[in-house]
Simulated scan of single mutants.
Amino acid sequence: MIVSCGEALIDFLPVKDTGGNDAYRPVVGGSPYNVALTIGRLGVPAGFLGGVSTDFFGDMLAAELERSKVALDYVERSGRPSTLAFVSLAHDEPAYAFFDENSAERLDDPATRPLGPEVEALHFGSISLIPPPIGDRLEALMAAERGRRVISYDPNVRPSLITDGAAFRARVERMAAMADIVKISGADLEWLYPGVPVAETAARWRAAGAGLVVVTRGGKGVIAFAADGSVESPIVPVTVADTVGAGDSFTGGLLARLSELGHLTVGSVRATPLAALQTALDFANRVAAITCSRPGADPPWRHELG
């Protein structure tokens, strides 16, 4: 089972009402949550680890996990409120405004739910790694499980939430060094290290302890850096509805395909042959393309990929 750790929240997406006025539509979301949905819908055993409210938004989140074949074994339901995120699509990249003070996600404690032997990989990322106490707790979980299970990490930078850039970059450095797979966008790398070439950062991270480093570059496709060299995968052309959740769908597709190929294990993931990595990247790009073709973070089911 691949377990995605972090936030589950409600995205409020901009829409027009019947009178043509600006309005918002609530949909389930959260980067790690979207990764879990993607893996489950692709038919690979998936789980989610995080805090989910017992309010009606939390019920929406739990119901969609179940519908998408994601196990709730490591979900903690509580009476704290759900995290809410308002999304702006006015520019090339989605912008977010988050409301999560004292939320079920932010105050969750993963240590209360020990992981079972069925968990082969853990994925971490996004806004749950910024605020205390959840950011510290998730980093501690990653450190405790390093070497025992495959560790996947996507910083998924949200600049509007980062009040201490130096502390955030330090956490990125620590977590990247512990990860077997680091997936990150070119835009996030530019925010973290302005003007530094992608290959230079990938080499530095790998020297510090990271395994595979996978960089999504929008229309330029994806490049992955591995022990045997690098490999690239072009984007899949599609009519784009929006890009909400595209990176999460890519990550879920990558992890699911590596699992199917037998390379998502502690003993083999860092030595994944370039040919197998190419196959996984191409598959993940197809998954992300389908997500981009429809509004919101709505990853595809396995039958949609043929």
Rank of each mutant, 00 (worst) to 15 (best):
126 S>C: 09
73 D>Y: 08
144 A>L: 06
104 A>E: 09
60 M>D: 00
125 G>R: 11
55 D>S: 06
130 I>A: 03
84 L>G: 05
67 R>S: 11
57 F>D: 00
119 V>E: 02
101 E>Q: 14
131 P>A: 06
77 R>V: 07
118 E>W: 13
89 L>T: 09
62 A>L: 15
106 R>L: 13
128 S>W: 09
60 M>C: 03
69 K>F: 15
119 V>C: 02
91 H>W: 05
67 R>Q: 12
58 G>R: 03
94 P>H: 14
110 P>W: 13
71 A>C: 05
87 V>D: 03
133 P>W: 14
94 P>D: 10
147 G>A: 09
96 Y>T: 00
74 Y>C: 00
111 A>C: 03
109 D>S: 02
140 A>F: 06
135 G>F: 13
64 E>S: 14
66 E>D: 13
134 I>K: 06
96 Y>Q: 00
83 T>D: 04
82 S>W: 11
92 D>V: 12
99 F>A: 08
80 R>A: 13
147 G>K: 03
142 M>R: 04
52 V>D: 01
76 E>Q: 15
136 D>S: 15
74 Y>P: 00
117 P>Y: 10
88 S>C: 09
59 D>T: 12
70 V>Y: 12
105 E>M: 14
147 G>I: 04
68 S>Y: 09
65 L>G: 05
56 F>Y: 12
102 N>F: 07
91 H>T: 15
146 R>K: 10
147 G>N: 04
84 L>H: 07
118 E>C: 03
106 R>T: 10
59 D>L: 05
102 N>R: 15
84 L>N: 10
126 S>H: 12
99 F>H: 09
54 T>F: 01
60 M>R: 08
63 A>D: 10
66 E>G: 07
